[in-house]
Design a protein around this nucleic acid. Structure first.
Length: 112
DNA sequence: TCTTTGACGTACA
DNA sequence: GTGTACGCCAAAG
């Protein structure tokens, strides 16, 4: 596994998303900026694809929007699974939003 | 090939 | 704080 088959923008997003520590959350913008994708939408798109594929190896529930809102919960099965998973990891969710978002926020740059 | 849509973000009134 | 507009780029029809 010294070399990945392809370095499509999804692979980058998948990789970074897997690096998100438990009890922490990241944002589309942070990932997009770190990977220099140019648009946060690319991150959401990749995550949607991975989710539809059933790639549970990717903790997409730890990725939220800039406001800390669980904007993509509707893409989960069931949608409430996103909040449940986050709360299970010690993250406080209130009204579909991360309370200590500022504290739980994690930036991929932490890997460096 | 063109148009529309989308788990977003920033800017402005 | 809210609503509107634009940019961003890829996938689907």
């Amino acid at each position: 596994m010294a070399k990945m088959k392809k370095d499509s923008y999804y692979d980058l997003v998948y990789y970074v998303t897997r690096q998100i520590p438990i009890g922490r959350v990241s944002t589309y913008g942070a990932i997009a900026d770190y990977l220099t994708l140019g648009s946060a939408r690319m991150v959401g798109w990749a995550l949607t694809q991975s989710n539809q594929l059933g790639s549970e190896d990717i903790p997409a529930h730890r990725v939220v929007n800039r406001k800390g809102e669980l904007s993509g919960r509707v893409h989960f099965k069931p949608p409430s699974k996103m909040q449940t998973s986050l709360e299970s990891e010690g993250i406080v969710i209130k009204d579909d939003k991360v309370q200590d978002f500022k504290t739980c926020f994690w930036h991929p740059q932490e890997l460096d």
